[in-house]
Design a protein around this nucleic acid. Structure first.
Lengths: 232, 232
DNA sequence: ACAGAAACAAACATCACACCTTTCATGCTG
DNA sequence: CAGCATGAAAGGTGTGATGTTTGTTTCTGT
């Protein structure tokens, strides 16, 4: 028992490692692994190897076939929306591509989410939105970038949740990731543009005022800026 | 090999059954299962029980804790975008709620997808889009509903794929589900409205003509009809 | 020589059992 | 009453044996 001479890794680390490798393209679609090879490589038992494989399998990264082994699947079969796969893609060589796709998804969803939020928000949420918009303005104008981003994230999360669509709400983490990542990918000015601040204000007001059409319009302004930054 | 006296089920059927039960609310969040109970109930070995649990765990439906058991998680932690969870929700008592959320997601994504497709489509895709739009008109006007829906699905799938965003493409199955389901949920006229046919035509033409703005506008017309049907 | 059937073998699937590890609950002790 | 020690419950991991599927090879009959 005890251990082994081979690289020993923590429990979930194995599906994590394999997931990243597959997403990264280290194993071509159609490539075959075996449980045995995983046991060897990571110094683990069949039980653990099977557990790890199950996770990857349930995200569509591979499937296991008798007498063949573990077959790596092509990207179009992956669960690209699941947080795990998103994480792996963002850690891959094509992080930028993943980031762009996520941004496009965010753009698509947020315009609709703004309208939904305007129709469904509670009183409390309305106040929180207005507060957050004000906070963003304050922090943005005083160039406290880090705090600004935190407020920005809170703003978008709140909006996504206020719409009452759980699938939109589930994107809050993605949006957070994108908002954080913008700085790294050079898609964000060091000082938030006044138009962006105005647009956030507008969105908050429209949502508070239960005006879906206006909320959508303001969000579209916001999103247009993001879109154009994407096309540079 | 033999069998057992207890309800014996196929391999994946167990995570399938449990997934549906959890999504359906048969196990409240915080409720605790044990591997032992699953073994008893399904007449399976620990290995299989663990395998099934791993699947549910990787979709966020539960987590396992030592000395406690398998704790069912609240809906906000579910991987609500993964096909598996979507399937379970659509098979649950709240299928209608899930359907509405999916429709909202579809609405959000498709407007953006239309614009993207207009920017990125290949020549072949352009022709296919125009063809499908024409086919839809023909089938729609002759009230061949089933074939019409098939063409509709193909149209939307093609558009989602043409944009080159894999996350949008992954929604093709969802959209297919929604388009098929519309009839069941009484959100669809037995005869497609002429405006809808025109809008599809418009989208196809705009995409073929590489006009993202127009593609988005036409898609918005389409989507507006869906939205209003949703609000009835 | 070729087609089809039969035997073989590889790899996953499942089972049973033993032991480890974590963590909650209990109860004892100072 | 606080704190610590102890026990037990439940999952986590490891092992070896056996079942099952399926691709490959070999054999046989024509």
């Amino acid at each position: 028992m005890a251990n082994s001479s081979v690289a020993r890794v923590g429990r979930d680390a194995i599906s994590e490692t394999l997931g990243r490798e597959i997403v990264d393209g280290a194993h071509r679609p159609g490539a075959v692994l075996t449980l045995e090879s995983l046991q060897q490589r990571f110094g683990i038992s069949r039980t653990v190897a099977r557990d790890s494989v199950k996770v990857l399998e349930s995200h569509g990264l591979l499937y296991s076939k008798r007498r063949i082994g573990l077959v790596v699947t092509a990207a179009e079969h992956w669960d690209v929306m699941s947080p795990a796969v998103i994480g792996w893609r963002l850690a891959s060589a094509d992080a930028r591509g993943a980031f762009i796709e996520l941004t496009q998804l965010r753009i698509a969803v947020e315009t609709e989410a703004a309208a939904l939020a305007a129709a469904r928000r509670t009183e409390v949420q309305a106040h929180q939105m207005l507060d957050l918009a004000a906070t963003m303005r304050r922090l943005g104008e005083s160039e406290q970038l880090e705090e600004f981003i935190a407020a920005d994230i809170a703003f978008h999360r709140l909006m996504l949740e206020a719409g009452g669509n759980s699938m939109f709400a589930a994107l809050a983490d993605v949006v957070a990731e994108v908002l954080t990542g913008r700085t790294k990918h050079g898609l964000m000015p060091t000082r938030p543009m006044p138009e962006a601040l105005d647009a956030h204000d507008g969105v908050a007001r429209a949502i508070a005022g239960k005006d879906p059409r206006e909320a959508r319009r303001c969000m579209e302004v916001l999103v247009d800026e993001v879109r154009s930054a994407l096309e540079e």
